[in-house]
Write a protein that binds this DNA or RNA. Structure first.
Lengths: 204, 204
DNA sequence: GTCTATAACCGGATAGAC
DNA sequence: GTCTATCCGGTTATAGAC
């Protein structure tokens, strides 16, 4: 098997192990076993465990951004004109996010675990800071596009609204992971939608 | 030194080590060194590392609840009558929370690390679920008291509003840890206050 | 109660055969 | 490229002296 393929396989295996047992539970042995290869193969592909984890952190950020972008994109595409269009778009985006969390809570566990690892690992810490800025940018973009589509405007820069959305998704994720109660998540989402609608101006 | 005193000392040391290096970095050696005792003393007081961590998780929840209760209590005590009183009380509670996060981000790192550890440790997982429920209860109580004090009411059960507050604090914490930008936290707090004020009824 | 010393184990990483 | 075998450092936990 070519190195590139093995590399991908190992990254996916590592992510699954992290989802179950956290970053510190993701030993080189556990990852290799999950991928069905031996320890030597691991080290043939990656120089070290740290090497794999760094790759996984950047990859995780990128795929997460792609997910956000498509989620916002499809929701925005279906938006009708007027504030009602924005409302529906926001509702669908957030309930779509909740669907994702409920369908695969372990994925979120893994993302949180990786974020935390990055934050307290020198060399990856700046990357974590960047990660949030990129989330903010992506969401600000989505809000912009959606408003254009609906023919409305925001009463302040979307760069100031985006952090509210990210904070809401973080709050939703932690609420679900800790309580496993979707109703609570739906309430947080509903409140977030109301909040954002309060910042919709008459028209662009 | 009596066992009870050593126990407390070791728990505090463990918390500090976790704040710096995470739960997995909190080895028995590191904790013992931080406390200025040897490994054997550790095992004289605690049966095992797992034993200490379990104790720390429950203790962490309790102290956090106490912090919340007093923060809400003092903020509520100073509240004037009418919706304006509620607004000030909410603003002060949240900006006080942000002050705490900014003053000691590592403490929050430790809380997050412990919460995550509890969630994926069998035997402690249920405790994590309980933890959030207790936060909800404490905050619901605080909202109730504050409304009484201000002579107003909420347009729905405070049990439904409390998760919004917890989600907001989670969002604030993660925003700060990842961006180190207090301005963003203040915006999230301000939005949360506005959101909650939207649920204040005319009077109780 | 607290120490030093050590047993038993697990983790990352490498050597060398194939 | 992938394997088996091994080294080595670090970790939990315990034994036994004081």
């Amino acid at each position: 098997m070519p190195v590139e393929k093995r590399r991908e396989l190992l990254l996916e295996s590592a992510f699954r192990v992290i989802a179950r047992r956290g970053v510190d539970g993701a030993t080189t042995r556990a990852i290799s076993a999950e991928a069905g290869v031996t320890l030597s193969t691991f080290h043939y592909v990656f120089e070290s465990r740290d090497d794999l984890l760094a790759a996984l952190v950047t990859r995780g950020t990128d795929t997460e951004l792609a997910v956000i972008a498509t989620a916002l994109g499809t929701a925005a595409a279906g938006a009708e004109r007027g504030p009602g269009g924005i409302r529906i778009m926001l509702q669908e985006s957030l309930s779509g996010y909740i669907d994702g969390v409920v369908a695969d809570p372990e994925r979120e566990q893994a993302m949180i675990s990786l974020n935390q690892y990055a934050r307290q690992t020198s060399g990856l810490a700046e990357l974590g800071a960047n990660m949030y800025q990129r989330y903010y940018d992506a969401i600000a973009d989505g809000l912009e596009v959606a408003a254009d589509q609906a023919g409305v405007g925001w009463d302040r820069p979307t760069a100031e609204l985006a952090p509210l959305v990210v904070a809401a998704t973080d709050g939703i994720t932690l609420a679900y992971l800790n309580t496993r109660d979707r109703t609570i998540c739906d309430r947080i989402a509903e409140a977030t939608v109301t909040l954002l609608l309060g910042h919709v101006g008459d028209h662009h």
